[in-house]
């Protein structure tokens, strides 16, 4: 057999390497290669309707940053960051408040906790159709409550001023329980003697919260901030199901815009430039959040 010429040790290493090959090939094919391909497409004038395409140099890049594409780029950046800010606030602040409320070892709380966390497991598309129904202008239950309280019916998804709020309601419903669970796990791991020492000094609830709990939670806050920020940039599904980017592009987030350039306008060239811009944006955000975090977090346990 072929084994003859190879040392058993080398063969062993080859086998170990072999174990990683299927994963590596798939990753190279479906993650790294497409990036190169994107760069190539971004220098062409390719739309899906034609088989033929030409290289047009920096035309698409100029279109995006200085041409007619700029307006929409700026808009989608604004919309995406607005959404991110909303999701971050709900997950971090809302999650923390809920964690403080639910932070009791009592048995009854754990059942309630599970219910608050459950929406995370309701698929986004199911959740989105539920919220479409709740927010329905004429028959929706939210407008029913509002009119009962003396308010007027709101066209939640039909006007620019409330469309983003509607999407954030959906996001918040699914995200807040997640923030809570992550914070709860962290609160539980804070050593009890810190609180006992504070009790001896007669510290109030608020003093302990400010002096012990919050500083000890800073690594968790950072973790939630980084992961939520990055995942919120990729928002697509809730927008696609609930508003389709409208009205008047008021909910047209970044990924939705890439999607509509590619799959609705068939402008692969423009979509590719947009996708690369998005990729660079993600890299910048990841790098800067990591850098920002260094040295500013209390890792002392």
């Amino acid at each position: 057999m072929t084994k003859k010429g190879i040392k058993p040790r080398t063969l062993d290493h080859l086998q170990d390497f072999g174990c990683t090959i299927p994963a590596l090939i798939l990753i190279l094919m479906f993650t790294y290669f497409p990036i190169l391909k994107l760069i190539q497409i971004s220098f062409t004038n390719w739309n899906l309707l034609n088989d033929h395409y030409d290289y047009v140099g920096l035309k698409n890049w100029k279109w995006l940053f200085t041409g007619s594409g700029r307006k929409y780029l700026v808009n989608s950046l604004k919309v995406t960051f607005l959404y991110s800010a909303g999701e971050l606030t709900i997950t971090l602040f809302g999650g923390l408040v809920l964690a403080l409320i639910f932070n009791t070892m009592h048995k009854g709380f754990s059942a309630l906790r599970a219910i608050v966390f459950m929406p995370k497991y309701v698929a986004m598309s199911s959740a989105a159709v539920i919220f479409l129904w709740i927010l329905n202008t004429d028959n929706g239950v939210l407008n029913y409550f509002i009119t009962r309280l003396g308010g007027r019916r709101v066209d939640w998804l039909g006007q620019s001023s409330t469309a983003m709020i509607s999407i954030l309601m959906l996001t918040g419903w699914r995200a807040i329980g997640y923030g809570m669970i992550v914070y709860l796990a962290a609160i539980r791991s804070i050593p009890k003697d810190y609180y006992e020492a504070a009790d001896l000094d007669g510290a109030s609830y608020w003093t302990k919260l400010r002096g012990i709990t919050l500083p000890m939670l800073s690594p968790t806050t950072l973790f939630l901030f980084v992961t939520t920020f990055i995942s919120s940039m990729k928002v697509f599904q809730s927008v696609d199901v609930m508003t389709g980017g409208g009205p008047n592009r008021s909910t047209e987030v970044f990924v939705y815009q890439i999607y509509s350039y590619a799959m609705e306008d068939f402008r692969m060239d423009r979509a590719s430039v947009m996708a690369l811009a998005f990729f660079i944006l993600l890299l910048v955000i990841t790098a800067s959040t990591m850098k920002l975090s260094n040295g500013r977090v209390n890792y002392d346990t």
Binding site: L24, Y32, P34, K234, F236, V255, I258, M263
Partner: peptide, 20 residues
């Protein structure tokens, strides 16, 4: 290389994969 792939979501790469 594997970890780097965590930073490249399908939302970036879907166009070439779709074409492929």
């Amino acid at each position: 290389v594997v970890l780097g792939a965590l930073m490249i979501p399908l939302q970036v790469t879907f166009i070439p994969i779709y074409v492929m």
